[in-house]
Amino acid sequence: MTQATYKLNQLQHYYGDKRVLDIDGLQIQKGSITGLTGPNGSGKSTLLKIMAFALKPTAGEVWFNGRREVPLSPRVRSRVTLLTQKPYLLKRSVFDNIAYGLKIRRDRDNLDSRIKEALASVGLSYEGFAHRQWHQLSGGEAQRVAMAARLILKPEVLLLDEPVASVDTKSAGQIRRASLTARKDWGCTLVIASHDLPWLYECSDTQISIANGRLFSTGKEHIIPPPYDLSQKKGPVKWIGTKGKGEYILLPPREKPDGFAVIQQEKIRICREKEKKTGWDNQITGEITSMLMEKSSHHIMTTFQAKNFSLNIRFSPDQAAALKLLPGKRLILMFHSRDIEWR
């Protein structure tokens, strides 16, 4: 059994009075690639900062390689590194930026050749970039330099927070390749937060969704995101499309003022046509907009879209074949409002 690199227990974090993270438990296995998805403001960056030991959680424990650790602990700070969406480059040359981490570790052996190798791993040439100043780089080049500054350290854990969100296609490709090479070459554990679901499903072993600071298993349970209309007599509803018009999802009475409506995948029935007189109080019409095969399990991650509402549903290869799933195919999702939980 592989050892867990991370174990998070009863983790909570607040900014002022606002709770931004509330995680009962999470384990990240050594050498794995974990995809982290969720809307903006859901708590992804906060979680990654805590995992990078750059932020102390308000409550809870972070265990790293079997030991409880805290920010700036010498045992972790040279083993975990985080690349943010807009990384800060130090006001010095590219060479000095990449060498910074090694210099503070007093590791100055073969700096030139190692920096050359790190730059090459992100598709930049030593001759063209090493002696440029920080302000002489484009956004994509700066991101790749920041990535090289982390890869040269050969970290045990590489945390990537939206690493390709604000860079061009070429830079994004280089960063993706470099991060996957890190696992291949020295068994680096990766946690990647990204909105780029196709890439995330393609490269990651497991995916976790985060919403309102809470974790959900991607493809096994689904968040029905706010806003919720609480003014209807029949109960709270989530409108599909324009408020007050067309289809809606009927929700059970709300239990928590700031809760999220969640439905388990096993409670959802997928059909080709609506069924009358069957007692399903939620029947949502939509179509499949994308299908991706998970690398590890060969399951099909399918995006179901109904106007502004979408769900990522995970099908086994047999289920996908039985339903004759294809992109563009019209489907009906049916589920009972009583099966929806508030969390």
């Binding site: 700070r77 985080l82 990384p87 800060y88 503070i104 570790r105 982390r150």
Partner: peptide, 26 residues
């Protein structure tokens, strides 16, 4: 100072002394 600076330094393995000295140099 850009809050990303401290985050960057911590993520590159800097200790307290390194963080202070590098912040001043920046």
């Amino acid at each position: 100072i850009d809050p990303e600076l401290k985050l960057t330094l911590v993520s590159l393995g800097a200790g307290k002394r390194n963080i202070i000295m590098t912040c001043l140099w920046e």
